[in-house]
Design a protein around this nucleic acid. Structure first.
Lengths: 343, 343
DNA sequence: TACCGTCCTGAAAACCTTTTCGCCGAGCGC
DNA sequence: GCGCTCGGCGAAAAGGTTTTCAGGACGGTA
């Protein structure tokens, strides 16, 4: 005589078990547990107690099998390694986590074959929708084949404008950066950025140029200093800029890493940042920006929000017939100590 | 008259559709598709063609419903934000990605309530197993409640020694670092590290002390310089160490960020790294280690492998009856330019 | 007392696949 | 020509839940 209730060993308790224990039919048990109102309060209580006793958890598979909805979505990333995917992924996970939706994570490693494979697996699991997270802001080819569920592209837009893409406004970000420098009274502004093959570099430069043009100014040297995204280039570029344009009083950097390198060189050269020269970075990567000397002002693209928005849009697309359209989100300036009015 | 085959609109094709199109029974269709050998080659070909035509994908839910196995696992992280979860997650995802297993990603944000909620959801989805990724190397409480599937803890071990935990060998990591410095001929070695509240800090210090003791030496100052994990502390600590122990010829840092700060101060003080003083970091965080001046030698804990191992162990636990035991993995020295023989 | 309406409850179908088992026809040996 | 074997195929059940619909109990009214 065991103290355990009659749970058939070695098997998760089913609704039938609960119904039996409560002395009702499975139909009634189902209604009681799902809060349907066609069941007497006393009966419901009895069923709930039985469920509790058996620590019954409804089999989501069986439920999904007839409902049509599985309550799952696929999250397809190109590379988990990239710093940018992670906050987006967090935001999306968060947007769903609150509800009844679980997230399948798939990393395609930038490989189209692998991606197709994952998509097939996800569809066979009958996900209700897909989120595709890119690794750069360059447009990417849409998912291959016909996908019978809604798809939302994040960060990297789909090359097909008919798809739903949620992206950051890099042009606006470039504008923000330069406007901030202008607000600090800066006029001789250089732009040091990464590889021109990246849309992110070109877009930010475009925004910067536009903001300068609006102020009747132009970029120091007439165009951006393109290079790579890392500190080493930042250090080299700063030397070049200072040599070519000793009058420089601000540098807008295409990434925090570049900015960090710029800061180091300016420090080596004995230039006073932020007063003689102000420096602003991009990405607001805390580990880099918050510990430089001086601490780095930067543009934050709010990627977590981007992911959350994508999650919500996908949810809407799944629920309603009205497909949401593409959206672009602005960033914001995060003030630290590397920018200030001239002094 | 449509060019499309007779697919009942608005519904994913089922095995019944395929069977009908191929002119066989569902049973035969199932066998043909699953490669069972009780079906004539010609029949199989006919079925496969029909499946292709309808782009049929078997409903994994229905399959799981009777098979008992869902081919899904839950990956429960404490914080996606942390740098350490990501490589582990990549490794685990990779270990499964090759097979037929899909991964549910859940971020508990360090909240026990949220964690319990996610576990409930995962169990109702009938995952075959769980991987729990911690955010620090300190032991964590095991999952609440009784979990009817195998669980593997990674990075942060479960506080219950009966659970399966896959962890990094921080003591060994501390040994590795000091042994490397000793091999460079260093004798006056200081240890600057993070908060003593972290097992990671204490374990690495313990390994360092042991390696020194084995060489008949002891730590400069007799004990580690505990502080925080960031650059700011590294900069401050380097000043302290050099002042208190001008004879210092090597500094073992508990993180790459600390090491970076140390490097900056030594540079400011005009000390020659690596020849006068060698510096070694910990974590091998590329963005930090590969772009410092000089580039930083560091201990890599190979977290991706850790995740992959966890995935494999979970897989074994799901498949076989023999539960694997806990394991600890050593790191390795990644040589760059901040360590060298005295010269 | 007979009848009607209102609540509850339960039986059964549906969702899609896999697997077991029985059946049928063909081929072969005697 | 007859009986046996074997290969190939199909019918049916199972897996757990939701939902629909029919039916039963009971209270109230004529």
């Amino acid at each position: 005589m065991s103290t355990e209730p009659e749970v058939p060993a070695n098997r998760a308790p089913t609704l039938t078990d609960v119904a039996k224990l409560a002395g009702v039919s499975v139909a009634t048990a189902s209604k009681a547990i799902n809060g349907r109102d066609e069941v007497k309060a006393a009966t419901r209580a009895r069923v709930l107690k039985a469920a509790e006793l058996l620590s019954f958890a409804p089999n989501a598979l069986a439920r999904a099998l007839l409902g049509g909805r599985t309550g799952t979505v696929g999250l397809l990333t190109s590379d988990l390694e990239g710093r940018f995917s992670i906050p987006i992924l967090m935001g999306a996970e968060d947007a769903f986590g609150a509800g009844e939706v679980s997230v399948f994570l798939c990393d395609a490693r930038g490989d189209a074959i692998r991606e197709a494979y994952h998509v097939r697996a996800l569809l066979s699991r009958r996900v209700d929708g897909l989120i595709v997270v890119g690794s750069s802001t360059d447009p990417r080819p849409p998912l291959a084949g016909t996908i019978p569920v809604p798809v939302v592209y994040v960060y990297a837009p789909s090359a097909d404008p008919g798809d739903i893409s949620i992206t950051v406004d890099n042009v606006g970000g470039g504008r923000l950066a330069v406007d901030h420098l202008l607000a600090c009274g800066r006029r001789e502004i250089a732009h040091v950025t990464g590889e021109p093959g990246f849309a992110a570099a070109r877009d930010r430069a475009e925004g910067a140029a536009a903001a300068l043009a609006d102020a009747g100014l132009s970029m120091l040297g007439g165009k951006p200093y393109y290079g790579s995204w890392d500190e080493t280039w930042g250090r080299a570029a700063a030397h070049i800029v200072v040599e070519q344009h000793p009058e420089v009083d601000a540098i807008f950097c295409g990434s925090d890493q570049i900015a960090r390198g710029v800061l180091e060189t300016l420090r080596d050269l004995g230039r006073d940042v932020p007063h003689a020269i102000s420096v602003i970075g991009f990405d607001n990567w805390d580990a880099i920006a918050a510990h430089s000397r001086p601490r780095l002002t930067s543009i934050d693209m709010n990627l977590e929000r981007l992911g959350a928005v994508a999650g919500r849009r996908l949810f809407e697309a799944i629920a309603g017939a009205e497909p949401p359209s593409s959206e672009q989100y602005p960033g914001r300036v995060v003030m630290r100590d590397s920018t200030a009015p001239a002094g």
